[in-house]
Design a protein around this nucleic acid. Structure first.
Lengths: 337, 337
DNA sequence: GTGAAAGCGCTAACAT
DNA sequence: ATGTTAGCGCTTTCAC
């Protein structure tokens, strides 16, 4: 019996094979109504025999669900990315959704963002990968969105999930002051517009203030969440003779840059200048000396974001802000030993 | 003028607004036929005014193209992953495709793989994330697939792209023997079934043979592409008093495990035992001592895979195998200084 | 150059 | 419990 041209099986094929109507097949697939055991068995057999897979585009069009969630990121880079994606994927998979990645280096030719509004049932938007007005537009059409590592544009109420950045930074600086006795604590910012960085800086300032230490703007520089940028900044500090007990980098990548800069100037970490970071990327533990940092539960945060998104998609309401706790990871770069 | 319920604009809305038929709008959008300048302008204006975005589900259903490429991976983990995804995303984005990620830790309830055949126009399949029979099934329906870091099941002719594993390993071992004068060279395999590992081992053996060195199975162990597994294996070797000049780990992660094991036994790298790896992950350069390894152009390979896939999707034929060159990265862990 | 109309594969009333 | 049917938003003949 010659196979017809390798046409993919459709719901009609399954229905015919199982000798039922397509509606029944649809019901069985979606568990949207009871089907008798015998029918179910025949449908199951037919699906297997024909290696049937529903066409999600058709499902979407007919029913309005894509079974897909989208992740919007600006760029796929950094140590940060892999645990994030891992968490997102796990969350999506657990909830039965596919994952579509939007890396928005470019917009489509009309200058509009070719977002997943039509391809996804919901979107997780990472940090500042999308301008506020896009976010607002999405929100206005009540498209399900949750924000990851950023907060809602003011006036809107888009749920967000991130880590306790301020608290983590505060804890770290408290530790540096109280346990290590440091006084001159430099800070290396991340990019402008990245909230993680802003909150960490706030935590830094609060701790300083709480300990009666004066904020010195000469001790705050741009690290750009980037090894090279941080290295350059710290090198400049050192050249200009600016002194400090410890450098608190807003993320581990910039901490690496700081360490490198210090070593290149023939100074020692932590004896001459201590360095601490934020995130606890894998590398942190392998550096020389191992980096004291604040552990950010990146994977958990991402996974949580998806869970919240699924809630929203199901029409449930979720808390406007979900903060996951951080934890100090004391290693050697802070001079603890 | 009260807005009607925030219903998304459809092609009908645009057509009405521009006072043309939906067919013309479709033609304009797809550039599938000339439309008169005046009409074009009105359509463009209407699209902008209504913030119209075509629904890709409908496009797919009607036109048969999803504008989506699927990436099949088993698990999102390892240093390897980020550059790979970055390459894939770049390739997809350049060709105008969205990217769907399938992390196949689980199959759907029927035990079938919920693959993207219906949701994607083509699939990039990473390593051994999919069993051969699934691959064959896909291939038989002439669904566009390209393999990444693995070769085609025999009898099939699925294009694949990967790196020159054998050559890279061969070069490394040649170097170890010829330049460093090592004789007892241990090898740490990756997982069973992962072709990268198999080819690297072949390169290792070839080099040994070419230099008249005997293959000693006691010097070959399981590293599992994993730090902990490798560490355990090397620790066992050391305990049993097995000696070697250098350990060639099939990937950098296992090289890290090897270094750790050696250090824990109070031996020194590279003075007592040298260690080299494969891949050149970011960490490699930060280890103590910095790891000599074979640079695998992971991002480029991934990007190339997508490019080939796009060719296939366009009906063009592509070479059955595409191999990208590797390069030695000599650092200190091999004892070169 | 443009419009009318027939589906693409599926879900969700509405029947029975 | 199962079948019938009307779309979902779009592309694509086929006419004009």
């Amino acid at each position: 019996m010659p196979d017809h041209p390798p046409h993919h099986a459709t719901i009609d094929d399954v229905a015919r094979h199982a000798k039922v109507s397509i509606a029944t097949v649809s019901r069985y697939i979606n568990r949207s109504a009871r089907v008798s055991p015998g029918t179910a068995a025949r449908i199951e057999a037919a699906m297997t025999a024909l290696a049937y897979q529903p066409t999600s585009a058709a499902q979407k069009l007919a029913g309005g669900k894509m079974n897909t969630i989208g992740l919007v990121v600006d760029e796929i880079s950094g140590e940060f990315f892999q645990p994030m994606l891992r968490g997102i994927q796990a969350g999506a998979s657990d909830a039965g959704y596919d994952l579509l990645i939007y890396s928005l280096r470019r917009t489509n030719r009309a200058g509009r963002y070719a977002l997943g509004e039509k391809n996804c049932d919901g979107l997780v938007v990472f940090a500042d990968s999308l301008p506020d007005d896009e976010l607002c537009r999405l929100s206005e059409t009540s498209f399900p969105v949750v924000l990851l590592h950023r907060s809602s544009p003011s006036g809107f109420n888009i749920p967000c999930v991130t880590i306790e950045n301020k608290r983590g930074a505060r804890d770290m600086v408290d530790y540096l002051i109280e346990q290590r006795g440091y006084r001159r604590i430099a800070f290396l910012r991340g990019h402008e517009g990245h909230e993680d960085s802003a909150w960490r800086e706030t935590g830094y300032k609060e701790s300083l203030a709480a300990h009666g230490l004066e904020y010195d703007s000469r001790l705050v520089g741009y690290g750009g969440f980037d090894e090279d940028i941080a290295k350059e900044t710290v090198t400049q500090w050192l050249r200009r003779g600016i002194t400090m007990d410890v450098i608190f980098a807003a993320d581990d990548d910039s901490a690496i840059g700081a360490i490198l800069a210090i070593k290149h100037c023939n100074r020692h970490v932590p004896q001459d200048i201590a360095v601490v970071g934020f995130d606890d990327i894998r590398l942190a533990n392998y550096l020389d000396p191992p980096l004291t940092t604040v552990r950010a539960p990146i994977e958990e945060v991402s996974r949580t974001a998806v869970e919240k998104l699924v809630e929203v998609m199901h029409g449930h309401s979720v808390p406007p802000v979900t903060l996951l706790p951080t934890e100090l990871r004391i290693r050697q770069s802070c001079g603890c030993c």
